[in-house]
Write a protein that binds this DNA or RNA. Structure first.
Lengths: 237, 237
DNA sequence: ATTGCCATATTGTTCCACAATCCTCTAGTG
DNA sequence: CACTAGAGGATTGTGGAACAATATGGCAAT
């Protein structure tokens, strides 16, 4: 207790040296494959197969599966296995209900809505525009995710942040369900910009209201797009 | 596809027959002991000890530990073990930041704020008053938890609900930190009642504002109480 | 087409082993 | 006396094998 400073410094080194456990590394690999689209929704993840493929024991794989299930990226069906989650319409509605609850509240009442935070939002919008003009829709999507995460962070609650991170990660799964997910975010770029405009004028309630409409429109468009996709798929089979 | 009704009914039976896995049962036992105060904050949970005590293998215990850690009821220190969480001041502030973000938003904008939902809140307040008048502060605390969970449910988001359930569970850990946690909730009972009054008059913005003040006061009182507790404990040692 | 049954595969769980890491205690050193 | 170094013991992290419980799919019988 004599010198907290040294302890803090060592803690820092600790953090640098912190090697994630095997199960966390396995979970991270699978996570990337899932949200990156390399493993499609509905795919069965067999313990032995994964174990053989990436060289960790079944025990470790099971632990990793547990994490993915806890994050809702996968679903466990008892005695059947774990499958990459396929978000249902209900899931999408719930995801947007969560966002409707948290994001506008963070905008309007979040204690972290500082000028620096607004400037960061502005920077993200600028980056998104560059991505759009450069013909890189992936950059636009990524910027959009960063934007909404930054909005949530204005609530200054790590627990809510974590929830929002999980929600936005699940959203990536949703986008992979669509036949054409590349240009989905483009129309919303300028609406993000409008929200930043309002924030720069300290009109937080209006910004929150704009975000609420934004989210409702996005949900509508997403559900409609997926309905036609689902109809197509049903017709094909 | 000929009869969804039957399928739904079978799904229901499935659910009734669903026996939780061993690790979930172990986690549930430990959860109850922790939030009930039988295992105090900071206690080390040794894999072998627990394994021997409740008769499941170390592997299963480890899985259960993972769940508790994911719920923040326990903390894992690599190569040292898992310990029952002891919420810090930062944790308390974060818990209340989360509540400030979600609960008032659910009150003001939640699509689940139906007359029935308000009536349920009213019933909870009545039950809390009975508990208070019967000299059962535990009943008051439990009703208070139910109240705020019901508020959150107005957001109609199972993901946010789950977060709030976790937050309220963590709050129980916080209360166990106090020397006197029995009568903490009593002063807030009538403020809950006032919020229900406003809701019954469809004055949702005012109800949300009242809840925001409520939460800020509760946080202040809690941090102060714990500060003196911490000071006492430091002085004693 | 539906039912009943059996073979097979996968999961859920246990048990054991062992390396890696942390804690404690002792002995030595200045 | 304070402090460092290191040995010893305990616990976790991970691997691997085994087995029971359960789901799947095919085949036969009605």
């Amino acid at each position: 207790m004599s010198n907290d400073g040294l302890a803090a410094a060592l803690q820092h080194l600790d953090h640098l040296a912190a090697m994630p456990s095997a199960s966390e590394r396995v979970a991270e690999v699978l996570r990337q494959q899932i949200v990156g689209g390399a493993i499609r929704s509905g795919t069965r993840l067999t313990e032995e197969t994964i174990s053989a493929r990436i060289g960790f024991s079944r025990n470790t794989i099971r632990e990793a599966f547990g994490m993915l299930v806890a994050e809702r990226l996968a679903v466990r069906e008892p005695h059947r296995g774990v499958f990459v989650a396929t978000p249902s319409r209900g899931d999408i509605q719930d995801l947007y209900a969560t966002r409707q609850l948290i994001e506008p509240a963070a905008l309007e009442f979040g204690p972290g809505c500082s000028p620096e935070a607004v400037a960061q939002l502005r920077a993200i919008v600028v980056a998104a525009r560059e991505g759009r003009d450069a013909g890189r829709p992936e950059a636009v999507a990524e910027a959009n995710q960063r934007f909404h995460l930054a909005v949530a962070r204005m609530g200054r609650s790590v627990r809510a942040d974590q929830l929002m991170l999980g929600v936005l990660t699940e959203m990536r799964l949703v986008f992979h369900l669509m036949d054409d997910d590349r240009r989905f975010h483009e129309p919303y770029l300028e609406r993000n910009a409008a929200i930043v405009d309002l924030l720069e004028q300290d009109r937080r309630p209006e910004a929150a209201a704009a975000l609420r409409e934004y989210l409702a429109d996005a949900e509508r468009q997403l559900v409609e797009a997926l309905d036609t996709d689902w109809a197509d798929r049903a017709r094909r089979s």
